[in-house]
Design a protein around this nucleic acid. Structure first.
Lengths: 209, 209
DNA sequence: GCGTAACCTTACGCACGAGTAGGTAGGGTG
DNA sequence: CACCCTACCTACTCGTGCGTAAGGTTACGC
């Protein structure tokens, strides 16, 4: 009755279904039966191709994380000025989240809370944080700044930035009507200008290239 | 053998145990049996006093959230300048998180991912965000600033701040050695000064009163 | 001292869902 | 056509953990 499809196609369908169901129900409340049903396949196939529930979840996590990283990397031009790099990175980031809201929810809301996956996710997050920290440090060196230069400070600062971005991404994921570009602008002002300057009416604007 | 204790005492013990276990295992992986065991009581007592697992979790959530709110409210003096209010609020906030790391983990990591509790938590979060937004708006009005004054902007800005604070709080919860006061300073600089100014060596400092 | 209400227990029912055993069908290759 | 490998299914087992029934024990009022 149903067509027999090659393995890669089925795996794609299963991962799509899994992301959707995990996103809607959460890791534990999601059942393998429902995932199989949404994927339009029977349960043993899921086990045959993607392994246990944990392995399946990890596969989702890795796929979405990889896509996200690639999207951001593709947006950034490493030769640009620091604020341009940041701007392009943020644009790519929020555009991705806006386009893959399910994926985002799986990645962050679910993975963080399950102690078993927290490690995996923390690793990915740590890589991002380190990239941001390096970017900060580079910008600082370039500006010959007198800012307190203990490595831990850059790291903690980067943590705060990443957290702020995640929070806005969550807001974006829950508000269909919000424009990713607009969210990126908010974030940019937030990061680059600071509240004091904002209150004095200074804002950051994208410059025509 | 074991002493018979009045209801309020037992409830306190149960909630303490529940927060600890939920924090360590996550909502689903936590079993009522383990919570009962940690509380030093048998399972039916938990059901008799605090109800089902969901109700128990909600009770934890509400208790911890209330404590957090009260701690912050107690730290803030409403007559102070906006940046002082912010500073005092942040100090109280990070001090609380540092002192109740388990509670923090229950509150945020767990509650956010379970769709069933996300609503409850989103409500609390929204209240905090609104307070922050109002604070921003007040500061803006006081400074007679020319900043874009659409109400949504304040709200989104507040979301970003809250997200950044949460992220630093997470970092704090996982790093025993980190000093809450220090974290608060990081956050303050982050919010008030902004990256651009930071890179020029400007920092925010607490002033002697 | 005696009832009664609050405290507390052991020991179970029962549903749900992860993971599997074992078997069927299609389609490429000799 | 016979072979076999891959795709695919139905129909189970079995552990785990929520929630409860039914009964025991201490304190306290009268």
């Amino acid at each position: 009755m149903l067509k027999r499809l090659p393995r890669v196609v089925r795996e794609r369908q299963m991962l799509d279904a899994a992301v959707q169901v995990f996103s809607r129900r959460g890791f534990h409340a999601a059942s393998m039966d429902e995932i199989a049903e949404v994927a339009g396949i029977s349960k043993p196939m899921v086990y045959a191709y993607l392994g246990t529930k944990e392995e399946l979840f990890l596969a989702c996590l890795r796929r979405e994380a990889t896509r996200l990283m690639e999207a951001v990397a593709a947006g950034v031009r490493p030769t640009a000025r620091p604020d341009e790099q940041l701007w392009n990175g943020l644009r790519a980031f929020f555009a991705f989240v806006g386009a893959h809201r399910d994926g985002w929810r799986v990645l962050y809301r679910q993975a963080r809370s399950e102690p078993h996956f927290a490690g995996e996710l923390a690793g990915m997050r740590a890589r991002i944080v380190e990239v941001v920290a390096a970017l900060l440090e580079g910008a600082c060196a370039q500006a010959e700044a007198a800012m307190p230069a203990r490595p831990d400070d850059f790291l903690a600062m980067a943590y705060a930035y990443v957290g702020a971005a995640e929070s806005l991404a969550d807001w974006l994921a829950d508000h269909e009507e919000e424009d990713p570009e607009h969210t990126a602008t908010r974030m940019m002002n937030f990061v680059w200008v600071g509240a004091d300057a904002l209150l004095q009416g200074r804002v950051w604007r994208a410059q025509a290239e």
